[in-house]
Amino acid sequence: MSAATAPVATGGPETGYNFAYLDEQTKRMIRRTILKAVAIPGYQCPFGGREMPLPYGWGTGGIQVTASVLGADDTLKVIDQGADDTTNAVSIRRFFERTAGVATTERTEEATIIQTRHRIPEAPLREGQVLVYQVPIPEPLRWLEPRETESRKMHALAEYGAMHVRLYEDIAHHGQIATAYDYPVKVNGRYVTAPSPIPKFDNPKMHMNPAIQLFGAGREKRIYAIPPYTRVESLDFEDHPFEVQRWDEVCALCGSSESYLDEVITDDRGGHMFVCSDTYYCAERQAARPAAAAPWSEAGGSAK
């Protein structure tokens, strides 16, 4: 056995497994894939995804990417639906605390690696940060053509007419593009790419972002990337330009009118309110506000 393949256990507190769980050979394979993904922005690179001790569909792709990028000096943040304390975010953060012993944080600006499901943090990211998305279905053409053999050809030929037709049919039927999340983007003017199911509200944040954006789909065994400072355009039409969601309300907890809001049902008589989906962003704003200030709104109307 050569030195490079000899298992070296320098794990975190949980002994018996390698650092960050994956063996070095698997990390090498994933690292090679990540580098190719960065070199071909938006192209889905097949990789030999491994079975992880967490279920498929629960972030195994993101976990494998994070495990291959993560080092002992990194500070990791994990969010699900924008929140640090949703059960699956807690579970994945604990997985890396146990297997890698790395520092974790809820502070967006402190994190060097952020693993996310369904959101991009509200605070702008910076160089030196890596955003790792968990991706359920990496193929944006899947709903038009379920066969990989076919969609692969369409990507090879940059044959995306069918996607535009589908979006245009939406406009014809509904007066608008009826896609509210996982809204397809074109990366660096070439590959049509699934932004993972983030709300389209977050799509503009992908454009020219200074951070490295990596996407891992474990069950589908694909990794793709958006390098920093890369053009990311949401598909649209001249007469129907891309628009993000807006709310009439502000966050009931911090008053933000700029963040993505979650609706919370407060009673069974139609009462509801809106709060930031990004819990860290919201907590920071609340902390900066005078303690005596009244809530911004108790219940809201409907979103538009």
Binding site: I34, V38, V69, A72, P228
Partner: peptide, 22 residues
Amino acid sequence: GFAEPVRQSQQAFRAALNALSY
């Protein structure tokens, strides 16, 4: 080769990732 393969290869990879990304 590397005296600490796990740590050193991770650091080298991050250097490569940064170089290729920027």
